[in-house]
Design a protein around this nucleic acid. Structure first.
Lengths: 384, 384
DNA sequence: TTTGTTAGTAAAGCGCCTTAACGAGCCCTC
DNA sequence: GAGGGCTCGTTAAGGCGCTTTACTAACAAA
């Protein structure tokens, strides 16, 4: 699809940035409006040109023109007339061909296994694969990822519009990994390396950020939300006022290593009492090991309170609408979540806590794979 | 200035919003690029057309055209040739006429006194006034503000491009006050009311948010920063990745009523141990009353630690680059700030705390007045 | 004086959206 | 069942905005 590269800029949409930054050309206008149309088709399903015009407040003429381009690219198709909607000429439904293109995604969040998939544009898995990492790291790991991605691309049954990767570590907007200690990566331009080698646009982002994106797009997350991912470690990704948060050094979301217990357990990071020492999946399992049901619930509630105390300032400062917990439901979705919720309610003003939902994430194990697809959808088509 | 209204849309600049929202027209392109040029002139001072073209990556032709428009509006002026810069025809410097227009701002953060000023476009005060509020509230207070603003507008020595107001309470993007208990305001469209009555564009925002804006533009704040305002109460405004944060219910920044002391002092909000009960200026003064220097320092350090513990999760989650304290320096800029800084460093991972500056705000008492001017600059000229 | 370089302007062209106008196709009513 | 009215989608013309190309103006250096 030759157009995907030209559509790259379409991810940029009108926002409310304070300091103006880059010039805008007429073609950016086009890309933006094209994304607007695709966005609507993606989320609302097949729609007539006239309805698209009403929804986007563009004119029918412009919408027709945009649709013609999308038809030529094979991104949308006509689905026949929509009869019996009252007077007037019946409308021709236009729908996105979500099966006509595919996305390859890779989840590197696990230390030992890399998981990958070929997905449709709606995030449905067509192919899944996984591969043992065998302690590989550094450049060796990069070429392993490349081979893995190549195999996935080969097994796609439709043209692939891009590759999305969720990886641990601090990763900036360009897909450069600043540091990922477990993978022995420092200052590695992973996205551009793989883009060159694979000959396809590759997007790379932090796994927790990617999980947040997945929940945002496929899980129905709100415009201001925090996703806490609990696994080997603890991470977080956040969307504020409809934008992903990067932070001053692209390290936003690093909640796992905030101190939450004074003189607590020693953490892998060298300090004591980090959130990760109480909330990571292994830590939680250790905590409830051998306990009966009630005692385990109480132990999990204790951690929930700690989480609530930690989140209260964040929720207040950002006036978050949703906090999602992503990870093993048997550990998180019970007394832990309840305790966290009540603790947050106790410790924040009603105006803030009243509008807050603290719930489990909806996508579970596939969050990162689905989220990585959103990365590609956003970059290539302007859809999210 | 008839053009100011047409320039209203220019505040919208290219960002990285996830979900595309509004259509873009060719004239938005123009407004954006116009703002880009003004932005450069505002921050970098007089510049030649050719240099502006290089800085914005627009062509000289486009820049010339934009400058012609701005010259016609009287927003910029030619400042003579710039000689001796090497070979070639010498450049003509173009500068913003920051004295040719003025901004009226009002600070309502104090319960008892409203403060106002007429400012140049660079935030320098030309006229100052204040007015006792005399327990007025509700509609009465609105008309008092209107009269006060009218007097300020009358005392301006140049055309006024707009009115900016910083007020307490939850205020949304449109300048509607959702609630401000002390002022007995609920769901009051203050900005549009005053815009109609005064016949000038009026911007209204939360006082802490406005303070953050002021520090961002005039105080040299970074792209990801939090400003904690300490006065009668405690508030906060934040800028994340170069955008103001609004939150799900426009209540972002309400840090004053996060619980920070278990079973602490009763707060005006009805709950116990809110940050405001230890960090507000009155609370701090009460705490150190009658203590000698060392004991007072220790007492302030104690509050600093509490602040540090509260901010650590926020700083980690957002990877903030700067935290600014705005308020009485005698209370804040000593052991309190030191303790907060070390506490944050202790409780966050080095990657986060290393890049963090926790410093005093630079604008002090005039933050809100200056920030309200930024509100107007942003809305009318696209400058921030 | 000539040459080379840079600043600013003018003309032509292309992209993108809008308004205006039209044929196509269907419902409803007379 | 014929015509009016409505909606859908397209075509044509026009305005706006930026770019490329080409030009003149003004200066330094050779």
């Amino acid at each position: 699809m030759s157009s995907t590269t030209s559509a790259g800029a379409s991810r940029r949409t009108l926002g409310s940035g304070l300091r103006a930054t880059a010039k805008v050309l007429p073609e950016h206008t086009r890309a933006h409006n094209r994304a607007l149309v695709l966005q609507h088709l993606f989320h609302e399903g097949p729609t007539s040109r006239a309805d698209l015009a009403r929804a986007t407040s563009l004119t029918r003429v412009t919408v027709s023109d945009l649709i013609n381009g999308l038809l030529a690219e094979g991104l949308v198709e006509e689905l026949g007339v929509q009869r019996g909607r009252g007077v007037g000429k019946p409308a021709i439904l236009v729908g996105m061909r979500t099966d006509a293109y595919q996305i390859v995604t890779v989840d590197l969040s696990d230390d030992t296994v890399m998981r990958g998939a070929v997905l449709t544009l709606t995030g449905e898995a067509v192919v899944r694969r996984s591969l043992s990492v065998h302690d590989r790291s550094g450049d060796e790991l990069v070429s392993l990822i490349e081979r893995f991605a190549r195999r996935l691309i080969a097994s796609a049954t439709q043209p692939v519009i891009g590759v999305g990767i969720g990886a641990p570590g601090v990763i900036d907007e360009s897909g450069r990994v600043h540091e990922a200690p477990n993978r022995k990566w420092t200052d590695l331009p992973l996205a551009s390396l793989l883009t060159d080698h694979l000959g396809l646009p590759v997007q790379v982002a932090n796994d927790a950020d990617v999980a947040a994106l997945g929940e945002y797009t496929f899980g129905g997350g709100g415009d201001s939300m925090l996703v806490v991912t609990v696994g080997q470690g603890v991470g977080a990704g956040l969307v504020v006022d409809g934008s992903r948060v990067w932070g001053a050094n692209s390290a936003a979301g690093e909640l796992g290593h905030v101190t939450v217990v004074d003189d607590g357990e020693l953490c892998a990071c060298g300090r004591r009492g980090c959130l990760e020492t109480v909330l990571s999946a292994p830590a939680l399992r250790r905590r409830i090991e051998g306990l009966d049901r009630d005692a385990a619930d109480a132990a999990l509630a204790h951690v929930g309170r700690i989480l609530g105390i930690t989140l209260a300032p964040v929720i207040s400062a950002l006036n978050l609408g949703e906090v999602l917990l992503s990870g093993p439901a048997d550990l998180l979705d019970g007394s832990l979540r309840d305790a966290a919720q009540t603790t947050v309610a106790e410790r924040t003003m009603p105006a803030v806590s009243a509008g807050l939902r603290l719930r489990m994430a909806t996508l579970d194990e596939d969050v990162v794979l689905a989220g990585a697809a959103v990365l590609v959808l956003g970059a290539q088509l302007g859809v999210s």
